[in-house]
Write a protein that binds this DNA or RNA. Structure first.
Length: 305
DNA sequence: GCGACAG
DNA sequence: ATCTTGTCGC
C-alpha cells in the first residue's frame, strides 16, 4: 500500500502558504548576531550543520531527511541523523520549505534534546534564503523555525526580481578566477539578494549564496567558502551523500512493476542490530560518524556535479 | 502561446 | 530531486 501520491495543492493552500511566509519573514534577521561571525578565523565556531532531503525515484511520498553536524574547522562528521519521512506537500518552486523544512526542524529539535552539546551553531541549507520570489526561501524558513543562523546554498540561480542567466551573467561567472571569488546578485529593485560564489579553485560553476537568518551576506559567503573541500560545502555535501545512501540501502530497488512481485532476495548483508531496523519511519537515528570518514584531499582538478 | 521552474 | 559509466587529468 504505497502512500497516495501528493497532488497539486488547492489555490487556497497557496494563499495560506504565502501568508505564512509573509508572517515569518518579519522575523528574519539579516545581520550577524554571533561573536564568531565577526572573527576573521571564525574563532568560537565549532560545529556547523548541514541538511538535505533525498527522494525515492518512483515514489512521491517517501524521502530521507538528513541532518549532519561537522566539526569546525576540521569538517569531520560528529553527528548524523537520517530517517525516512513521509512527505505531505508537493514540490512547488517558491514553496520548497513547506515540503522539507518541517522534517529538518524536527531533526534539529531531536538533537537539541538528545545531545545538546552536539547541536550546530549554524546551518548550511540546500536551497535559497532571501534570494526568493517573496524573499523567504527555505533557508530563512528553517532559520526562523529553529532560531539558528542559516545560510542558503543553491546550485542553480533562481531568476527572481529581474535576475537573469543572460550573457552578462555568464561573463561575470567567467571572471570568477579563484575559489572565494564572487559577485553580487543585484535585483532590479537595487537590493543585493545574494552572491554568486566560486567555492573552489577547480570548480567553474558557482554556488548562489544568500542570507537565511541571523547572518550578514558577507559572513554567509565567507563561511560557505571556508567549508568547501569540493564545490558543495562539506556539511551539505555530507547530508546529501548520507541521505541518498540511506535510501539506496533501505529501498534498494524502488518499484519492480505493477503486477506481481515476489519475496525479496536477502542480500549478503545483515540489516543491523537485534531490534530489526528495517522498519518504516524510524531509522538509524545515528550518532557517532563511525571511523569511516573518507578524509579526502582537496583535489585541484575536482569539479563535481 | 512562451518561458521559467531552489529541491 | 532522479535517470547514469566511463573518462580525462593531476
Amino acid at each position: 500500500m504505497a502512500q497516495e501520491a501528493i497532488g497539486p495543492p488547492p489555490e487556497e493552500t497557496l494563499s495560506l502558504w504565502k501568508r505564512e511566509q509573509a508572517l515569518l519573514k518579519a522575523r528574519v534577521v539579516d545581520q550577524d548576531t554571533e561573536a564568531w561571525q565577526r572573527d576573521p578565523a571564525f574563532a568560537g565556531l565549532q560545529r556547523v550543520g548541514g541538511v538535505d532531503v533525498s527522494f525515492v525515484k518512483g515514489d512521491s511520498v517517501r524521502a530521507c531527511a538528513s541532518l549532519v553536524v561537522l566539526s569546525y574547522p576540521e569538517l569531520e562528521v560528529l553527528y548524523e541523523d537520517s530517517r525516512l519521512v513521509h512527505l505531505t506537500a508537493p514540490y512547488l518552486s517558491g514553496f520548497l520549505a513547506f515540503r522539507e523544512a518541517p522534517f529538518l526542524a524536527d531533526a534539529v529539535r531531536r538533537l537539541r534534546e538528545e545531545a545538546p552539546s552536539l547541536a550546530p551553531q549554524v546551518l548550511l541549507v540546500d536551497g535559497n534564503g532571501v534570494l526568493h520570489p517573496r524573499g523567504f526561501g527555505v533557508a530563512c524558513h528553517l532559520g526562523v523555525l529553529t532560531d539558528l543562523p542559516c545560510v542558503g546554498v543553491a546550485k542553480k540561480l533562481l531568476q527572481v526580481d529581474g535576475l537573469e542567466k543572460d550573457a552578462l551573467h555568464q561573463d561575470q561567472i567567467r571572471l570568477l578566477r579563484a575559489g572565494g571569488d564572487s559577485f553580487p546578485l543585484t535585483g532590479r529593485s537595487g537590493a543585493v539578494l545574494g552572491r554568486a560564489l566560486r567555492s573552489h579553485d577547480g570548480s567553474s560553476k558557482p554556488l548562489y549564496i544568500s542570507v537565511g537568518h541571523k547572518m550578514s551576506l558577507e559572513t554567509a559567503v565567507r563561511l560557505t567558502r571556508s567549508c568547501c573541500r569540493f564545490r558543495v560545502p562539506e556539511p551539505v555535501r555530507q547530508a546529501d551523500i548520507r541521505s541518498r545512501d540511506f535510501i539506496r540501502r533501505t529501498l534498494g530497488a524502488p518499484p519492480p512493476a505493477p503486477g506481481r512481485e515476489r519475496a525479496q532476495r536477502p542480500k549478503a548483508r545483515p540489516t543491523g542490530g537485534p531490534g530489526g531496523p528495517s522498519g518504516e519511519d524510524r531509522a538509524p537515528a545515528a550518532h557517532s560518524p563511525g571511523p569511516s570518514t573518507p578524509a579526502e584531499a582537496p583535489a585541484p582538478g575536482a569539479q563535481e556535479q
